[in-house]
Design a protein around this nucleic acid. Structure first.
Length: 902
RNA sequence: AGGCACGUAGCUCAGUGGGAGAGCGCUUCCUUGACACGGAAGAGGUCGGCGGUUCAAUCCCGCCCGUGCCUACCA
């Protein structure tokens, strides 16, 4: 078979992905006995397009998946997508806006239809892009958080939690996005520090003289103030408590109350209390039974409660109000102040605390088992320190607001009776419904046709939908067919590992833990592998606004899937951010090309010889060259390292072991040495076997990281094995016997040192390779025997024409000298060396280094405490080193003397 | 405010209680029959600073400086 000179990914990737998929290799056979390995994909949003975070996340998952499949585990990886409530609704709303209309004009039903058709057209973009990464997930099991089965699971969970009292409805101060016009959970609010102002405002006493100055960052909320609070023990305000002040602008009388939650140090020690617009004040309002006045509506415009300011936007109101107060002399002063504002995580609009009736999940009872499960090690975080983050959040968890005032999502299965609950319900459809917190919702698995209390047929359904993350929380079991008791669940739940980014530990991981434990009575995953963010090469978060985004699709086009995957694996040191640069990908593209050409060399040299590259590797008893033995030893080490690294989730170590073996060992040394034995008829056959057998093992070891090139080359190898695809071939085990061949390895390495030393001389003295050198080897030892036995290696790789051995005696006068182990290598330079000064300089430089090194070691060995307390082997090692360096020093000095006499 | 990471070669990053590493970049040489997406050789680092533990610290501990992130209702 003729391979092109360079690897061309585009000619290979699509072809093999189709073959794998068509042959069903991605599927898991539930009936097959044996160990299982299972994962569920973190479902990307249907609005999404592949970014580097996805690429990293899915590369790691696919490495694990392919590895376990090759280990023989029954391997299941379920893919799917998330309906992404707000994000998707926003996309379609933007489309409508472009058409000059909006969702209200369309109506709920038509709007939801419209979203479905959008999803049909565009929702699979992300899965097609994932496929380009080569992910081996079982597409026949692909799920969507809004599909029928998952919707059933969502409903079952909601109803059950309601029945258990873990879901409830209440009027509460929640986070509200005035642009999306929906409630948000605490997690969906992102805090950002900004430069704001602190306004000091005068509130005059209603009776008598005097005033209290309060400090606020949000003067417009003053319109909703129902008290002023001070610390009860604050001497300054002792007499104020119980009196009333006049609310500026509106003239309302409000009480001064004492509350120990007020800090005496901050500002003036007095605080305005606005229960309907501030979380602190809300709590204080509840404690003191204060009225709660909403002065802003759901679009953050001032309500009629705001008096003269009604109808103004919140910021406009602020400006007008402050101006008015200044005119009245009620502004004591305004100072700059850093404060953090909450923004909607989907649209960046500043979020407003908003008093409204919402649905909540009571989190504490669900969190406790989830905390215990991690404490007991039933679920393990990798790296471990994420446990702390998880505990920190879980232990201080607050109830989860799950209702969203959107149309795209799982509509809450709750109905209100317009008859027996008519005092609490206004409106007659989901769109115009206003229901107080006192209404009694009818929550049901089946859509009710009449009120279970009064039998009335006039029911109206709650218009809210559930937080997207509510359905994501069920993902590990809902995708496996729950609430039915399926074989899939029995076989694959809990999943083996969840691979995810730390940014969604709270959003997703924590909630899956809670729901999984509650409904499945078991953790959803054994391990959570938390990888970091992909950043740019300066460590900046990639973002469109910064313009530093590296588009994975472009990278795939330029360098191929395997190169990107290998790069991500190589850079993903556990728990560290991945700082990606295109140069790096290019480097690993070159690696792919190196493999390609090594295989090309191999195929050119097999010349149709019948050979089983997948057959057993030669055994140590067989007659083999030193190079053969060495490479087989190194292969075994590589296999052991790679397996250990993947088992320990150290993907970067696996990648570097593979890289080093193939490039620095197989190509740089073994291939070059094999060229010698291929020319020797007696050795040719064995060399071919080793050459091909090692390559075949290497391809299998590499396959989880670089699936495409490994399949393409593996298929090109002759007679490799029974398996029709490398994907389902067994993962190589380190061969114990070759692992133990340390002696051959040491001899080879000593030869490598000899060759390097000669090359070194050649390079330093600028002697072209064509210029053949003579070599004198001084010293009697196994090292000398090694050179004697492998002269061909040294001659070929170092360009030496002639080798002589001397036990000792005079060295030639003009020569270069190198000390390697116990040997002194002398290269006579008479007639070649134009300028002895160059060689003198070279030697002097080396000598300088050596002298320094020797001084350090001698000092150490002179230290009594070191000799007393250090372990014997360390001392022995230091002694050996001292002797070796002393030998080198001596040889160098002698050589320098000779050179200087020239 | 609290917490968690991180500071190692020009750049981006691995790593380890006893010999400082990789990729890219740089310098010199090589169009040698797998590969110039290549080969050979090399330069370059007080492993952020200061203390401590230890026979021995880049690694463990403390403090400081710098950077990044997360959490938090302090107006």
């Amino acid at each position: 078979m003729d391979l092109p000179k360079a690897y061309d990914p585009s000619a290979v990737e699509e072809k093999w992905y189709r073959v794998w998929r068509e042959r069903g290799y991605f599927g898991a056979d539930e009936k097959r006995p044996g160990r299982t390995f299972s994962m569920v994909i973190p479902p990307p949003n249907i609005t999404g397009s592949l970014h580097m975070g996805h690429a990293l996340n899915n590369t790691i998952q696919d490495v694990l998946c392919r590895y376990h499949r090759m280990l023989g585990d029954v391997t299941l990886w379920i893919p799917g997508t998330d309906h992404a409530g707000i994000a998707t609704q926003n996309v379609v709303e933007r489309q409508l806006a472009a058409e000059g209309t909006d969702r209200r004009a369309l109506g709920r039903e038509k709007f939801v239809e419209r979203v479905w058709s959008w999803r049909k057209e565009s929702g699979s973009t992300i899965t097609r892009q994932l496929a380009r990464l080569g992910v081996s997930c079982d597409w026949t099991r692909e799920r969507f958080t809004m599909d029928e089965g998952l919707s059933r699971a969502v409903r079952e969970v909601f109803v059950t939690l309601f029945e258990e009292g873990l879901v409830y409805r209440d009027r509460y101060l929640i986070n509200w996005c005035p642009r999306c016009r929906t409630a948000l959970s605490d997690l969906e609010v992102e805090h950002e520090e900004i430069d704001g102002k602190l306004y000091h405002l005068r509130y005059r006493f209603a009776e008598g003289a005097g005033e209290i100055v309060v400090a606020t960052t949000r003067p417009e909320t003053l319109l909703g103030d129902t008290a002023v609070a001070v610390h009860p023990d604050d001497e300054r305000y002792r007499d104020a408590i119980g009196r009333e002040v006049i609310l500026p602008a509106l003239g309302r009388r409000i009480p001064v109350i004492g509350d120990s939650g007020v800090s005496r140090e901050f500002g003036t020690g007095a605080v305005k209390v606005t229960p309907a617009h501030d979380p602190n004040d809300f709590e204080m309002g509840r404690r003191h039974g204060l009225p709660m006045i909403s002065v802003m509506d759901e679009e953050a415009r001032m309500t009629s409660e705001a008096g003269p300011y009604a109808g103004l936007d919140r910021y406009e109101c602020r400006a007008r109000l402050v101006a008015d107060l200044e005119a009245q002399g009620l502004v004591a002063r305004i100072e700059p102040h850093r404060l953090s504002v909450g923004q909607c995580y989907r649209c960046r609009t500043v979020v407003e605390p908003f008093l409204s009736v919402q649905w909540f999940v009571r989190a504490k009872p669900l969190a406790e088992p989830a905390i215990a499960a991690v404490r007991e090690g039933r679920t393990r975080f990798v790296p471990e320190h994420w446990e702390k983050v998880y505990f920190g959040w879980m232990e201080n968890i607050r109830d989860w607001c799950i209702s969203r005032q959107l149309w795209w999502g799982h509509q809450i299965p709750a109905w209100y009776c317009l008859e027996c609950d008519r005092d609490h319900v206004r409106g007659d459809s989901a769109e115009n419904l206003i229901v107080t917190e006192h209404a009694r919702p009818i929550v049901s698995r089946e859509d009710p046709t009449e009120c279970p209390r009064c039998g009335a047929k006039r029911l109206v359904r709650d218009g809210d939908v559930l937080d997207t993350w509510f359905s994501s929380a069920l993902w590990p079991f809902s995708t496996m067919g729950w609430p039915d008791r399926t074989e899939t669940l029995a076989r694959f739940y809990p999943t083996s590992v969840l691979v995810t980014g730390f940014d969604i530990i709270f959003f997703w991981v924590a909630r899956m833990m809670m729901m999984g434990l509650h409904f499945m009575r078991d953790v959803p995953f054994r391990d959570v592998y938390v990888h970091a963010l992909v950043r740019d090469e300066q460590g900046q978060k990639m973002s469109k606004s910064k313009g530093n985004v590296i588009d994975p699709l472009e990278v795939l086009d330029r360098f191929g899937t395997d190169a990107l995957r290998f790069t991500l694996a190589a850079l993903s040191a556990m728990g560290r951010d991945v700082k990606l640069s295109v140069d790096r990908v290019e480097g690993y593209r070159n690696f792919a090309n190196k493999i390609w050409n090594a295989a090309r060399f191999l195929l050119l040299n097999l010349e149709g010889t019948p050979l089983e590259s997948g057959g057993p590797l030669p055994a140590p008893e067989e007659p083999l060259t030193l190079a053969d033995r060495w490479v087989l030893h190194r292969l075994a080490i590589c296999a052991a390292e790679v397996r250990g690294a993947i088992d320990g989730d150290r993907f970067n170590e696996a990648a570097s072991a593979l890289y080093r073996f193939l490039w620095s060992e197989y190509c740089d040394w073994y291939l070059e040495l094999a060229k010698i034995s291929l020319a020797d008829p007696e050795r040719q056959a064995a060399t071919r076997r080793v050459l091909a057998g090692v390559m075949e093992r290497f391809l299998r070891l590499l396959h989880p990281f670089m699936p495409f090139i490994t399949e393409e080359l593996w298929q090109a190898l002759p007679g490799r094995s029974e398996s029709p695809s490398i994907m389902i071939a067994p993962y190589p085990e380190p061969d114990e016997r070759w692992l133990a061949e340390n002696e051959a390895a040491a001899r080879m390495e000593s030869l490598i040192d000899v060759i390097r030393a000669i090359r070194n001389v050649r390079a330093d003295l600028n002697l072209p390779h064509a210029r053949e050198l003579a070599l004198l080897v001084y010293g009697e030892s196994v090292d000398a025997d090694g050179v004697r036995a492998h002269e061909a290696y040294v001659k070929r790789l170092a360009g030496v024409a002639d080798i002589e051995y001397r036990s000792d005696g005079d060295r030639p006068r003009g020569a270069a000298s190198e000390r390697v182990g116990t040997l002194e290598l002398v290269i006579p330079l008479g007639g070649i060396l134009d300028d002895p000064a160059a060689e003198i300089r070279r030697n002097e430089k080396q000598l300088e280094k050596i002298v320094k090194e020797l001084r350090g070691i001698s000092q150490k060995l002179a230290n009594e405490q070191f000799l007393e307390r250090a372990p014997a082997e360390v001392i022995d090692k230091e002694r050996a080193k001292e002797a070796e360096i002393a030998g080198r020093k001596h040889a160098l000095e002698r050589n320098l003397d000779r050179l200087r006499q020239l």
